[in-house]
Amino acid sequence: MQKDMIIKRLREEGCRITKQRRMLLDVILEEECSCCKEIYYRASKVDPGIGTATVYRMVNKLEEIGAISRKNMYKISCGAECDREDACTVEFDDNTVKHFSAKTWNRVILAGLKAYGYVNDQKIRSVEMQSCM
């Protein structure tokens, strides 16, 4: 959705379009933010007075009107030593879903990178993904 359409939908939902909401919308549309904390961090640089609750409410409202989908926001920051069990979920076009721990996901990525000649003896520090949807 374009900014003007999103603002129109927010107004239809009874939202006042404040300076903070416009700024949050700009941050979300201009940046590739992967989570509310990242949106807050970037927004607080523009407006130090913004609260985390404002960010979460705005993200919830944008999701509610269909402007964004948190399902498609991904950021995996676990390295090879991370014990996180739910680090990655892969959904295939036949609706099959596979869940990977951080260690397993890093091994899969590293094997693929080695197979294509992208790495030698390096270790993965982090992997970041954005959905194509």
Rank of each mutant, 00 (worst) to 15 (best):
T52W: 15
R70M: 08
T52C: 08
V59E: 05
N72L: 10
G66W: 03
D47C: 02
E81Y: 02
E63R: 01
V46D: 05
K61A: 01
Y74Q: 09
K45P: 00
D47G: 00
S77Y: 04
M73I: 06
K61S: 00
D83P: 10
C78E: 13
E64V: 00
N60G: 11
Y56L: 09
V55P: 14
D83I: 07
D83E: 12
I76T: 09
E64N: 02
G79N: 13
P48D: 02
C82V: 08
A80E: 15
V59A: 08
L62V: 04
T52R: 15
N72D: 13
Y74K: 11
S77A: 05
K45Q: 10
D47N: 10
V55C: 14
C78R: 14
K71L: 07
V59Q: 08
S77F: 01
G66V: 08
N60A: 12
A80S: 12
N60T: 07
N60K: 14
D83M: 06
E64H: 03
P48E: 07
M58E: 14
R57W: 04
S44I: 11
K71P: 00
I76R: 09
P48R: 12
Y56D: 10
I50D: 08
M73W: 15
D47F: 03
D47R: 06
C82I: 06
E81T: 02
T54L: 04
N60C: 02
D83Q: 08
E63I: 02
R70V: 12
M58R: 08
K75H: 11
K61M: 14
V59G: 07
Y56G: 00
L62Y: 05
Y56H: 04
G66M: 08
D83H: 04
R70C: 13
I68P: 04
I68Q: 04
P48Y: 11
T52M: 14
A67D: 09
I65M: 02
G66Q: 11
I68R: 04
G51N: 13
R57K: 14
R57S: 05
K75D: 10
D47V: 02
G49V: 07
N72T: 12
E63Y: 00
I65E: 01
E63T: 00
G51H: 15
Y56W: 05
I76V: 06
T54Y: 06
A53V: 11
M73Q: 14
I68Y: 06
E63M: 01
K71M: 05
D83S: 09
M73A: 12
K75P: 02
V55G: 13
S44W: 08
A53K: 15
P48V: 03
K61E: 01
G79K: 05
N72R: 15
R70D: 01
K45E: 07
Y56C: 06
T52K: 15
